[in-house]
Each structure stands twice: as structure tokens, then as C-alpha cells.
Design a protein around this nucleic acid. Structure first.
Lengths: 261, 261
DNA sequence: GCAATAGTGTCTCTCAGACACTATCGG
DNA sequence: CCGATAGTGTCTGAGAGACACTATTGC
């Protein structure tokens, strides 16, 4: 952009770009990562499933568009939508990613606690939570967006306190551990997880109210809420998958995707 | 985008979005992080400095546009530009970020070794390397983009092998350490740095050719080249800035920006 | 000789993984 | 009693920080 508008550039001269947002809205439900999908009511991909999203309006930013769409699709109140964590993932710009016209899409990820039955409001009549591991082929390049979103969230759990976004305002350490285990697809040692979480300054803080509550049977657990910290130092690293010998690979693997704010 | 084009949507109906790329091109020179800036030849911000960049053409992706612009601004050959690491940072979409029209910009970071005198080719007659720490106010929102880019690169050095992108094809461990020290703005212990780098599988590998070379005086150093790995496990964590007591802050700090591929 | 850089070795402290053990609930 | 979940304590091995020491160059 620094070189300015080309000489004689006319905004209406060539087919314009449309700009959209696509949302990967995640929640942890029944020990599985779930993502919110909507059924398409028109071509292309009519009857197929896609990530919720929509056009960025002429006078709003992509962030505002994402929150507006999120409110429409989930039926959450404006306050709830304003306060939750929206993470811009990356922007998808392949010229043919939408067969109708040139569309670049800014992708976002959002993390929600498992709500009683969130969606409802929007124009997309049929929105549904899907197990993020078993979604069929999605419309457009949404499979790739979804994969990128999962990778990003998983990476970000390592060095941020983001996991609490999946939890209700008050939660047990068991529930927090469940978030990590679900997103990473691994089992963690409970004593070590507790030690790590409790020693991280500002990650969680105890709630002194009735120190009890549980899902089924077993000893009631103490409640916690998110602390003031957002970064996690030192990070809570994912266990190394030791299936491969971890030797030097021949070709370069793709560069890892770290988190972004 | 999943909800489709609005009823009666006409691509030419409302003022279209222009899509640009902006590039934060970094190199390490004289123990300081440098960034490539171009002087603007027209309004707005005429005579001011800005990140290089330009419009995404109707039939190219943002990645292709970024590589094309990079080749134009630096004078690097197409092969060199094709092979280097380009990292999409994020997309800036504030409605008024460009006073002329609605422009969304996809920002990229690129890492180059310190070249003999890289720039030259492009339409921007005056491109210059600036110390990234002392750039004045830049055009548009480029100060923010530059800050975000520095943060991202710094974070990504921790858990990727990206630092070798700042180095020539063959380099000494001292030069590699200089990259970390420059980007992070800290001093590292040489023996510990060596141990860490050499024990990370696939980070660097020795070059058996003439095992010598140095910048000034002192013992000649063995040469290395980048290994096949891209991820760094376990990560090479930045030393904790112990200036603040690292207590729990009152309000939430912004979410950290991890790397993205 | 000295300064400067490269490279080796070692000690210690922290922390993560593993795991044994106790506590409190529903049945 | 049992099973299930919560919570505590301890041992150990890997690794980071600190730092002493040697090696090889230019001057």
C-alpha cells in the first residue's frame, strides 16, 4: 500500500474484492472438541455445511463484523459477544476460493464454554455443533480453515491462559484439564497438571464460595476462576509425540503456527 | 461467507474494498534489527516513510502479491524470493486506515540475511534499511504493523528454527547467537546457547568444508548450515525479564501473539 | 605478551514426568 | 464395602543458568 494507488486507479475500474469473515467457533462438549457449522441454503455448496460468517460491511472492521456474525449465529447477547476472546487466524486469498467472485476472507477463532443451547438467532436456520474431528468436507476452503484453527488453538494453549475461555466463569481444575486433554488429544497427569496450573501466576485463582461441586460422583472439587494473566510463563508444553523417532526429517516441514493476538 | 452473497448483491453496488499487502522485511545488520522502508512519492503521507507493499492483482493471491512486491523492492531474483520464508502476520481492516478509500491490508513479515546492497529494482526509487528501533512515525498504521511484526518474529524464534533465515547459507554459531540477541534485545550465555542449538535435532548441521572463518580477530569458527527441522523442541525460551516482580496484574494484558505459518 | 572470539566441562537449581498415597463423595 | 474423582507428597532425570577453563587467532 505504501506505493499508493496506481496512476489512474479507479476503485470501480476492475472487479472489486469482496471481504468476508469466517468463524471457527469452538467449544468442549462431552470430552470432544465441537465446532459450530451452518447449513448452506443456496448455491454454491447448497445443502453443504460451512463455517458461519458473512460480509464485512462498508463501515465496519473485520473484528466488528466477526462479533456481529457471532451474535447472529449463536444468539448470544451483545455483552457476552463483546467480552469473549476473538482471535484472528489468517486471511485466505486464493483467487478461486469462491466460484462466484473474488472474495478474500479473514478467518477468526472463538472459544465458548459449553452453553445450554447457544445458537438460535441468526439468518442461518440450521446451525449445529459438530464434533470437530468428524466433520465431512465443508464448503469452500473451510476444511483448511478449520484445520488451521485447530492447530492454532492447540498451540496457543501451551503459552497462554486461553483454556479458561472454554470454561464457565467458575470451574474446577478437572474441567480445565479436560479442555487441554480434549484439544490436544492426550491424557495428562492430574497431580502434575495441578502443580503447573496453580504455580503459574495469574492463571487461575480460587473462589472461596461453597468449595464444592462435581459432575457425577467423587469428591467435590474446589472452584476457580480465570486470573488476570493472559500469557503463561513458563509454558505448559504438550507432551512430545514419541511415536516417530524425532530424527531430522529429510525435507523441511511446514513452519509451525504459533498463536496470534 | 457461508451465508452466501446477500439477496440482490451486486459486486459493483457499493464502494468496493481494495486489498493490499504490506511487508515488514527484516535483516540483522551491525547487531541491530533493520527493516526495509520506502519513501512515499505521493499523497497521503507524501515524503513520509512506509512499509513496502502494493495492491493484490485480480488474479493473484496475497502470497503471490507479497513475493512480487518483495522482488520489486529488494531487487532479489525470482528464485531467491520464491525460496525465502514469508509469514502472514495478520490483516488490518480498520475502515479509516487509508484516507482515500476502503483498503484492507494483509501484512507479511520476511527475514533476509544481511545482503551486500539488496534493494534497487522496484518502482520505489528510495528504499532504505532502517534500524527497526528508531523508525519515526510511519505512514498509515504501519507503526502498529511493524510493532506486531517484531513481536511475532521474536516469539517465533523461541519455538522454530526461523533464526537461520537471517543467516547466509553457511554461518557460525556466533552469528546465529547474534540473531537471537539482536531480535530479543538480550545477551545470551555462549556455552549454553551452543549446547542448546547443537542438541536440537535438525536445527543446524556442521559443514565439513574448511572449518574456519571469522569476522574480525579471534579463533576461527566452524561453519554450519540450517538443518531440516523447522520446529524447535523443546523451545529456546527467551530469558524472563525480571524487571517487574511478575506478580499477577490487575487488568488482563493483551493476548500474546504467537507465530503463524 | 594482550584482547578477542571459539569451544569444553561442570555444578546446581528448577521443573516436568511418574507414581504412591490419602480424602471425600455416591452407590 | 466399592468405584470414582479430588488433592498431597516424593523421587528422579532432563535441562537451563552460571561460570571456570582451554584453544586459536590478530595485534
Amino acid at each position: 500500500m505504501s506505493t499508493g494507488v496506481p496512476e489512474g486507479y479507479d476503485p470501480h475500474a476492475f472487479p472489486p474484492f469482496a471481504v468476508t469473515v469466517d468463524l471457527a467457533v469452538f467449544t468442549v462438549r462431552d470430552a470432544a472438541l465441537h465446532v459450530l457449522l451452518v447449513e448452506r441454503g443456496q448455491e454454491p455448496f447448497r445443502g453443504g455445511w460451512a463455517l458461519p460468517g458473512g460480509f464485512v460491511l462498508p463501515r465496519e472492521s473485520a473484528d466488528e463484523a466477526a462479533r456481529r456474525e457471532l451474535a447472529e449465529e449463536t444468539g448470544l447477547g451483545p455483552d457476552a459477544v463483546d467480552s469473549l476472546h476473538l482471535e484472528q487466524l489468517r486471511t485466505y486469498t486464493e483467487p478461486d476460493r469462491d466460484p462466484r467472485m473474488r472474495v478474500v476472507s479473514v478467518a477468526y477463532a472463538a472459544l465458548l464454554p459449553d452453553l445450554p443451547e447457544p445458537r438460535g438467532g441468526g439468518d442461518a436456520a440450521s446451525a449445529k455443533w459438530w464434533d470437530a474431528g468428524v466433520t465431512g468436507p465443508l464448503a469452500f476452503d473451510h476444511d483448511r480453515i478449520l484445520t488451521d484453527a485447530r492447530d492454532r488453538i492447540g498451540a496457543k494453549l501451551e503459552y497462554t491462559c486461553l483454556a479458561t475461555e472454554f470454561c464457565p466463569p467458575e470451574f474446577t481444575l478437572g474441567e480445565l484439564q479436560q479442555v487441554y486433554e480434549t484439544v490436544w488429544g492426550v491424557e495428562l497427569d492430574r497431580p502434575n497438571f495441578r502443580r503447573k496450573v496453580l504455580s503459574a501466576p495469574g492463571f487461575v485463582e480460587p473462589v472461596d464460595g461453597p468449595p464444592r461441586r462435581t459432575g457425577g460422583r467423587g469428591k467435590p472439587a474446589a472452584l476457580h476462576r480465570a486470573g488476570g494473566a493472559t500469557a503463561l510463563h513458563p509454558p505448559l508444553l504438550r507432551p512430545q509425540p514419541t511415536d516417530a523417532p524425532l530424527s531430522r526429517p529429510e525435507g523441511r516441514t511446514p513452519w509451525p503456527s504459533p498463536p496470534e493476538g
